[in-house]
Nucleic acid binder design. Sequence first.
DNA 1: CTAGGGTTAG
Length: 583
Amino acid sequence: MATWHVPLTAEALLNGCRSSEELEQIQAHMLKTGLVLNTFKWNTVIRRYANSNEPEAALILYTQMQTQSVPRNTHTFPFLLKACSNLSAFEETRQIHGQVIKLGFGSQVHATNAILHAYTSSGGVNYGRHLFNLSTNLHDTVTWNTMINGYMKCGEIKKATELFKMMPTKNAISWTVMVSGYVQAGFDMEALEVFQKMQAADMKLDSLVLTSALSACSHLGALDQGRWIHEHINRSGMKIDSMLGCALIDMYAKCGNMGKALEIFEKVGNKSVHAWTAMIFGCAIHGQGREAFSWFKKMKAEGITPNQVTFTAILTACSNAGMVEEAKSMFKSIIKNGHEGHTSSPTIEHYGCMVDVLGRAGLLMEAIDLIKRMPVEPNAIIWGSLLKSCKIHGNLELGKEIGKLVIEMNPDHGGRYIHLANIHAAAREWKLAAETRRKMKAGGVSKLPGCSTISVNGIVHEFVAGDRNHPEADAISSIWHQIADRLKQEGYKPVTTGLLLDLEDNEKETAISQHSEKLATAFALIHTKPGTGIRIFKNLRVCEDCHAVMKLISKIYNREIVMRDRTRFHCFRDGKCSCADYW
DNA sequence: CTAGGGTTAG
C-alpha cells in the first residue's frame, strides 16, 4: 500500500476480462504479483461492469477492493448500487447501504438516491420508503422521481399517485414516470389524463413520454389522440426512431388503420424486433394470417432474430385465421430451434396460443392432450381459452368440468362464472346456471359490464350494456325496433342459446337487444350520413348474436362496420365478416 | 454520479 503504483497491465487485464471466472483469476494474479490500482481506476472498472451484461463482476470487484483495503470514495457507491439495481440484489443493497452510512456518505443526496433506486428495483420498496422518510431534508426531484417510479414498478399505484400529488417541483421525468407507470399497470385512461395535465403544465413532450402515451392510445383504441401525437411528432421535427416508430405502428394497427401502420413501418430505419413484432401482431388482430407469415419471413431475411413475443404474435395470427397446420409447424420449429440457442423453448404463452388454435378449430381432444404434455402447469388463461372453445363447439360436458376447474383457480374473475352459467343454460340446466350466478354474487364478484365506444364528429360516445340513462336512450330504443323489424324480414332470429330463463328483473334489462355494441350501432345509424363507415370499440368479445346482427346491418343499411373487440378486429361488409366466423 | 420509453395468449 505504500506506493501507488498504477500498473496499466492490471487495468487492461480487468477491462479485457469476459467472465466472472476470468475475473477471479485476474484478482488472484493481482494479489500474488502485488499489482495495485488506485481508487479512481477501481471505480472506472466497477462502472464498466455495472453497466455490462455481467454486473455480478462489479460486486466481486468491490469485495476485492475491500480485502485490499483500497479507500472507497463517493464515486464508488453509485456504480456499485447500479449493479445491485441491475441484478435486483436486495441483500447486497442492504450491506452497501450499511457501508455508505459507516463511511459517512449517508448524508449525500446522490448516494441516498442510488440506494433508494437499488432498493426499489430489488423488491425492497418498503426499505426504500423507510429511507425516503428518514432523509426528508435531502430530497431533490430525483429522490421523488425514484420513489414514485419504484412504487409504480411494483404495482403500488395508489402510493405513487399520492406522492406525485405531494411532490413540490415536478419535471418532465416526474410526469413521464406517471404516464408510463399507469400504462404498465393497465390504467390507460389515467395515463392519458396525466398526459393531458402534463401539457397543461407546459412541459416539453419528448419521445419517451410520447411512446408511453401512444401505448395508452393503442390499448384504448383512441385513434384521435394517437393521431394528434403523430402530428405533434411531425410538427416538432422529432426523429422517429425504432422505439417511437414501434409505438406508432402499434397504435395505428390497434386502432384499425393498418395502412398507416405500414406507412410508418417502411419509414422507420433500423427496425428492431419489437417493430417487426408490432407489425405481425397487427396482422394477427386483423385476421391476416398470410400477411403475418410474409412479414415473419421478411424479418428473418433481414437478419432479425424473432423473440418469444414474435412467436406469440405469429401463433395468434394462426389462431385468428384458423391456420391449424401452419401453427403446428411453427410450434415445432420453436421447440427445435430452442435447443440451438436460436430462441428459447416454448413458453406458457406459446402453449396457450396452441391450445387456442386447436380449441377454436374444434380439436378439443388434441388441445387437452397438449395441455397434459405441457412441461409447466397450465394456468387459468389456458383453461379459460379451452372453456370458450367448448362453448363454441357445443361440448357442454367438457365445458362444465373445465368451468368448475377455472372458477376454482380464479374465483375473482366474473367472466369465468358467466361462461359456466351460459354452458349450463345451453344444456338447459337452468337451476345449475342460476346457482353459478348466485355463487358469483355470494363471492362478491361482479362481471365487467360490456361497454362500447364510438366516435361521431370528434366526440366519443360511450354505451354500457342495458344502460337506459343515455340522454338519447328513447331515440336509440325506437330506432332499434325499426332495425329489428328489418332484420327479421331478412330471416334473423336472435341467438339466445346460453341466455338464462330465470333472469332477475334488472338482469333482463341487459338481455341481448341491449348489448352495448347494438346501442352504439343504433346511435351511429341515427347520427351519421348514409354510406359512412361505423367504427366501434368494445371492451369484451362480441357475442354470437351481435356478430350475426352486425353482418346483416352491414348488408341492409349498406354500411361498413369496423369493430374492435377485446382481442381482434371484425370488418363487416355486405353481409360478411373479415373473421369468416372464426373467433 | 443518481430518475423516465416500445411488441405478449383469453
